[in-house]
């Protein structure tokens, strides 16, 4: 599992950076998408490697009252090895939404660039204020 994830991250980053180095802005957008997926995979790896582990849906009887920092809270006394850490997935969900917003903005930018300059090749875009 570790090797598979690591390999996937490698492939996504390698492909992403290859596309980022292309001259066409459209390829750059795709490259950014691949790179952000790679970073999400890195984040997902933070959940741990136990493929047998289930979703952390805890029964009431598994909870005990405890005092943390002077406040009474309910914590689980279950074996944490049985469960996946759900936090990275919540973080990834947030990151996906943000990444989607950014990519769609950048797509609009590329479309806008094509509209006003007639090209999406980075090298052919006009340089200075001579228009």
């Amino acid at each position: 599992m570790e090797l598979l994830t690591a390999g996937l991250v490698f492939v996504l980053f390698a492909g992403g950076f290859y596309l980022l180095l292309q001259r066409s802005l459209f390829n750059v957008v795709l490259g950014l998408a691949l790179c952000s997926h790679a970073s999400l995979m890195v984040m997902l790896a933070g959940s741990g490697w136990n493929v047998e582990a289930g979703a952390p849906i805890l029964e009431d009887k598994a909870m005990v009252e405890m005092v943390v920092d002077g406040e009474e809270v309910t914590v689980s006394r279950v074996d944490t090895e049985q469960y996946v850490d759900p936090l990275p997935q919540a973080l990834i969900l947030t990151a996906i939404v943000i990444g989607f917003g950014l990519l769609s903005f950048f797509m609009v930018l590329v479309a806008r660039t094509y509209e006003s300059t007639g090209t999406i090749e980075a090298g052919e875009l006009p340089r200075e204020n001579e228009t």
């Binding site: 750059v28 970073s39 990151a95 300059t117 875009l125 006009p126 340089r127």
Partner: peptide, 23 residues
């Protein structure tokens, strides 16, 4: 049009920074 050129550079670099941050 010149803004679009420099603007894309700004966007791409900062998105890369965001990707590295997340990693």
């Amino acid at each position: 049009p010149a803004t679009l050129r420099e603007g894309s550079k700004f966007v791409v670099l900062n998105v890369i920074a965001g990707v590295l941050f997340l990693t």
